[in-house]
Design a protein around this nucleic acid. Sequence first.
DNA 1: TATTGTTATACTCTATAACTATA
DNA 2: TATAGTTATAGAGTATAACAATA
Lengths: 147, 147
Amino acid sequence: MRVDDVKLPETLTFRLGTLGAAVADRFADRIAAHDLKPRHAGMLTALSMGEAASQQELAGRLGVAPSLMVALADHLAKLGAIERVRDPRDRRRQVLTLTGHGRELLVACADAARSLDEEITAELSADQRTALHAALGVLAGEAGLPR
Amino acid sequence: MRVDDVKLPETLTFRLGTLGAAVADRFADRIAAHDLKPRHAGMLTALSMGEAASQQELAGRLGVAPSLMVALADHLAKLGAIERVRDPRDRRRQVLTLTGHGRELLVACADAARSLDEEITAELSADQRTALHAALGVLAGEAGLPR
DNA sequence: TATTGTTATACTCTATAACTATA
DNA sequence: TATAGTTATAGAGTATAACAATA
C-alpha cells in the first residue's frame, strides 16, 4: 500500500469540508458586526421564503432542536428582526414574522456573502465561476437549506 | 427593498458553508466505525505528507491549539496509528510518525471519502464533475490544508 | 393524552492559561 | 529565561430530557 494512492486531500468530500468551514468562519466574521451568526442568517432566509411559520415548523426546516430554535428566536426578537405573536386559534403556537429591520439584516448578510464570493473566486476564470455555481446549485438542491 | 433581490441561498458562500457542513457530517459518520473523526483524518493526512513532525509543528500546520494536538495524538497513539518518540537531541520534543496501521486507517478514510464523492456527484454530468473538481482545487490551494 | 414552546441539564469541541520538564 | 508538551479550566454550541400551558 502506497501513501501516494491515498490522496484524501484531493477528494471533493475533503475539500468541501475544509473549504466550507473556512468560508463559514469568514462569513461569520463579517456578519458579527450585526450581532448575527450564520444560524441566524439561515433562519432569516427561511423566514423570508414562504409564509410565516411557527417555531416548530421552522425548527424542522432548519434541522435544529426546538430548544435551539427558542434561543435563536429570542436573539432575533431582541434585535427587532422578527415579531413573535401567539396564534389566536392555537395559543400554544408562536408565529414568527420578519420585520422591516429583519429584512434589512438579511440584505446585509447577502451583501456580505456576495462580497466574500468575489474574494473567494478571484482566481477563477469566468467559465470556472459559472461552472462552480451551477454544480453547487445541483448539490445544494439534493440536500436541504439548513445551517 | 424586495426580498427577491436578496438570494443569500444562491451565493457560493452560503452553499459552500451548508454543503461543507453536511458533507463533513456524513464523512464523520463513515469513519466513526474506525474510531476516527475528521480532525484525525486531517492529522493522518498531514503526517503522511512530509517527514515526521513534532506535535507543535503539526499543530501549526493544522491550525489547532497545542493542547488539542495532545488530545488528538493521544487518541491516535491509543489506536496504534502513530508512534511517539522523544527526540534524543531535544528531549522536550515528541516526534510523531505514522505506523502501518495508521496508513491503513488513512486508506480507509480515503475510501470513505471517495465513495461519498460518488454519491454526492451522482446527479452531475461528467463535465460538471471535472469542472467542480478543478475549481475546488484552485480554491483549496488558496486556503491551507487543515480541518 | 398529545403537542408547542420553554427551561434545565449535559455533552462535544476547542481555546486559554497554568504547570512540568527540558533546554 | 524560553520552549515543547501537558493538564486544568472555561466558553461556545447544541442536544436530550423534564416541565408548563394549551389543545
